[in-house]
Design a protein around this nucleic acid. Structure first.
Lengths: 218, 218
DNA sequence: CGCAAGATCAGGGTCGTCACCGATGGTGTG
DNA sequence: CACACCATCGGTGACGACCCTGATCTTGCG
């Protein structure tokens, strides 16, 4: 509400649509300083590290992995930078996922220019900003620890034994350790792992780790 | 911001200090309708079920179990009622705990009358309301980094670069992918990984995954 | 009973992982 | 200016991960 008008907020604008970036910039340029724009994940990562903006306006659906990927890659390396997700989507998965990655706010693109400026200011001050409907998602997920709708069809296709092996592998157990843990031979572990990788369409145990990590299965 | 001025919000005021209730009522009575007051958990539970107020102003420290107890007992039975915690405490445990129980907002008693009225309106509209400093607690906790107090001496001994590499390896990235990600050669990645494994006294990338997994670093 | 599917195991091969050896250049510090 | 520390690379070799192609045994089902 008060804020400083002399030193304007520095903002990085990340969206894959140039026209949208132009529109946003026109709407907020009077109140904040748009120091740069980025059109994909790699570009966004580089610009954040280079310019250290106070706030990053981040589109959720982005070439190269999405806005969440940007957060995972530079969020920890730019602790002073706040991320405000700006998306067309109001789907619970997108909202929750983005917040889990570390975003400080999430507003939809139906927002008006002045509202966006206010949101940027609040996020920069350390507050959290959500469109009214979206705040419910976050608090529900947090309070209910329901884990959203993790109905993974891929996971259902695994057999019980395969899921056991998968969990241990994803947590970093060596084949030998899994074998000892489950009282089976290394060769059997290999077979199960191969089945899991094939069913999940992955190509290595490392990808499996990332897959499980992304889904909070470990 | 807009809200309806004709049909005023119905509010239940819960606090064990009569004088404080009187003060709050005086501050907000012009803008909202305080339909009742309650001084302890049992009374609050009964009033909520009887009167179905739109918003419950809930003190966190309350005789009979605290504000969280009220939420756990009637929150699910009064889905239309929103709970706004109003407390002297700004301790992270209180904030997180109350939100976990289902509160839609949390403000400290340093708030002014008009601000409280605005907060009541926002909560009633489905928005989440937090004092700026408190929002950080909630999102940090939600993002899974509650255990930040895990000042691992081992982790401190890693260099910045080593931590970056470690994080990616633990998440399942192949050496090749880490190299590409950090713009360095595979050989350098190997060197860093070796340093990390030696410093953490681990013997493989898989043990590193488990190590990081156990510490919620990924 | 015939048959499918899951769990168990082996041999053999490719490729990534990791340690041990070495090297260079940049940085900060006594 | 030495000296330590860090980040960056290269070679070699042993070992594990992973795939492919087999196999036996049990369980459930029409």
């Amino acid at each position: 509400m008060n804020a400083t008008q002399s030193t304007r907020r520095t903002v990085l604008l990340v969206d894959d649509h140039a026209m949208f970036r132009t529109g946003v910039r026109a709407e907020i340029a009077d109140a904040v300083e748009v120091v740069a724009e980025a059109a994909d994940v790699d570009e966004a990562v580089a610009k954040v590290l280079e310019l250290r903006p106070e706030v990053v306006l981040l589109d959720v659906h982005l070439p190269g992995g999405g806005g969440g990927e940007v957060l995972r890659r530079v969020g920890h390396r730019a602790p002073e930078t706040k991320f405000l997700a700006l998306s067309v989507s109001d789907a619970a998965e997108d909202v929750i996922g983005t917040i889990r990655s570390g975003a400080r706010g999430y507003v939809t693109k139906t927002i008006t220019g002045p509202e966006l400026v206010a949101a940027i200011g609040r996020v920069a001050d350390g507050d959290a900003v959500f469109s009214p409907r979206l705040a419910g998602f976050v608090l529900d997920a947090f309070a209910g620890s329901i884990e959203v709708a993790q109905v993974d069809e891929d996971l259902d296709r695994l057999t019980e034994r395969e899921r056991e092996v998968m969990r241990l592998i994803a947590r970093g157990y060596a084949y030998k350790e899994v074998a000892k843990e489950l009282f089976i031979s290394i060769k059997t572990v290999e077979t199960h792992v191969s089945s899991v990788l094939r069913k999940l369409q992955l190509s290595s145990r490392h990808e499996l780790t990332r897959w499980a990590s992304d889904r909070r299965l470990i």
